[in-house]
Amino acid sequence: MENKWFNILVPIISVLIGLFAGALIMLFFGYNPIQGYIALFKGAFGDLYFFGETIRQTTPYIFTGLAVAFAFRAGLFNIGAEGQVIVGWLAAVWVGTTIDAPMYIHLPLALLVAAIAGALWGFIPGLLKAGLGVHEVIITIMLNYIALYSSNAIIRSILTENADKTDMVAPTASLASEWLANTTYFSRMHYGIFIAILAAVAMWFIIERTKLGFELKSVGYNKHASKYAGMSVKRNIILAMVISGLFAGLAGSMEGLGTYGNMTASSGFSNIGFDGIAVALLGANNAFGVVLAAFLFGALKVGALNMPTQAGVPNELVDIIIALIIFFVASSYLIRWIILRFKREGK
């Protein structure tokens, strides 16, 4: 019971300390923190347009947060969500631009292919970890760069003729929604948010209500005990990475079929995958927590864009705040440990 309380308290305290630190930084550089945060709030929820954009940003964060959280549950650190997002994005746009089919086939197909691409990109580190014991962190970092450079090359030489941008996906593969856009003053909000919520429910169901979920958690807690109990540790490690990659691949499809409708060759990462790490940590690796954390980070990121114009504060302040939140969540183990220890001694 107590543990549950800590799981809820620690993220909340971390966010508050992060925001407080942000306020101190604003004070230090001569800004008015209250004005700064009002600008942030208005930029995230000020009117329906901003709200739509916040939801738009939340959508891929839910997916990458679920991806990282799912792997965490099995004791794996999927720092490669970024690369899985890229291959998912590319796969979705590839299907969306080249295939001609009615919507009820085209859209699900594009989503499915994106999920498979992400899953494959998660399968490689899963296999290497399970088979050879190679640490998944290094492999996934390397795969991020391979994904980035390869997809750039594919965009430039296969999907287009030396252009930096693919065509827009066919309307039959697009997640864009006229009524959602109209009701939110033409924000880029799209149907993806509903798929993201479904995915969160799916993750909750797999983790809490299935044998697979039980085994994954068990492997995450103690590999040796799980093996002794007759579970296949290798199979579970591979499955965890595959499902994790699947979520991240879908995050890419949200951008490819929803927000942008195409893909641009880029010299750097979108950071959706890396931000997913923060989302998962803050959400305590719990499906419901991930949705809340994704919403918070979506609001912070979108709201930040309003800070330079309304309060003169550079929007990177929010990146600093997010970094500090991660620090406090990560270092909270100490706090938690001390409190638990005191309680035990008090008894």
Binding site: F274, I277, L281, D319, I320, L324, I326, F327, A330, W337
Partner: peptide
Amino acid sequence: YADQVVSGVAINFL
């Protein structure tokens, strides 16, 4: 005793 990978990720963001 924080997770060193997480802390490293935070360093990169920061």
